[in-house]
Amino acid sequence: MKKPNDIILHAVTKVAVPIILAFSFHLFFSGHHNPGGGFIGGLAIASALTLLFLAFDIETVRANIGVDFKVVAAIGVLLAVLTGVGSFFFDASFLSHTFDYFNLPIFGKTELATAVLFDVGVALAVIGTSVTTILSISEDR
């Protein structure tokens, strides 16, 4: 049996992945006030990547995304922890977060919170781990 082609899937994937990614970012950023957050955002991004892996093969995707996802995960965790460590320098308890509202020129009243930094760490860790896991398994023969 000849290897079947995946034209339909590829085409749809190319449309779907950006949607998923956009949605993931939405989930990630709305997390502070709406359902979502770093973890879900990260996983959604990871699922977008998974869809890519599903539709194409590992090598093709790898060629385009040249990141060691283990390191991504480690950096994510480090980021989250170091956000907490940051509070040492302000003489606050570990993992103390702060937030304030700024009037930025374009966005208007914007909330900036260190918790977002923490969430970025979470998201990175989640992306890194899920992709590492999936890739490791599927690379095994």
């Binding site: 997390g31 502070h32 006030h33 709406n34 359902p35 979502g36 957050g37 977060h97 937030f99 909330e111 919170a113 918790a115």
Partner: peptide
């Protein structure tokens, strides 16, 4: 904590 999502 400046967050409207309590769970978060």
């Amino acid at each position: 904590a400046g967050a409207k999502n309590i769970v978060n």
